[in-house]
Amino acid sequence: MNIFRLTADLMHLASIFILLLKIQKTRSCAGISFKSQLLYALVFITRYIDLFFYWVSLYNTLMKIFFIGSSLYIVYLMQVKFRATNDPVLDTFRIEYLLAPCALLALVANYAFTAQEILWAFSVYLEAGAILPQLFMLQRRGEAETITTHYLFALGAYRGLYLLNWIYRYWAEGYVDWIAWIAGLVQTGLYTDFFYIYYTKVLKGQKFELPA
């Protein structure tokens, strides 16, 4: 464990708490893509299935339980409790165009042709693109509540910090993980526009609005 990875994981945790806070405080999931949240639940389930037969540490196990549990809870909040505030009209990204290529890629680019490794690779590829429905929805709305932008910032910063962690681990331990690295680079890259607007608007006290 190094400072980049710990900070990254804490940012990831923070992003989920911010999202829960947004939904509970405003009693609404307006502006949040249900499709992205559904994909994250799928990412966590397929990656952390090893929870039952692969022990890393107590930290690792507790985080896995938290991520699976909270993602399912968010899906429940959006689909059941606050369903009326969910806006499927703006949530139009075709997730099959994401799921199918990720499944294919996982079958050909993995560390071992076993169910567990294929699911792991699938989860890493899917995580890289899981934010796309959310960014697509943001684009269609043209604006976002400030708390939603804090959620997206924390979520984007998490994978960005993992990039620093990987550089550090390569240097310190000779650690190499090409699948996670390339997917992580793509994932962080998707946030570039968002980060720019977050930095130039939200951090200066303005509303998050996309240029016309």
Binding site: D50, Y54, N60, Y111
Partner: peptide, 10 residues
């Protein structure tokens, strides 16, 4: 095994 040991991250 070695392959699995690579997945110590979240």
């Amino acid at each position: 095994d070695d392959t699995r040991a690579a997945h110590d991250e979240l």
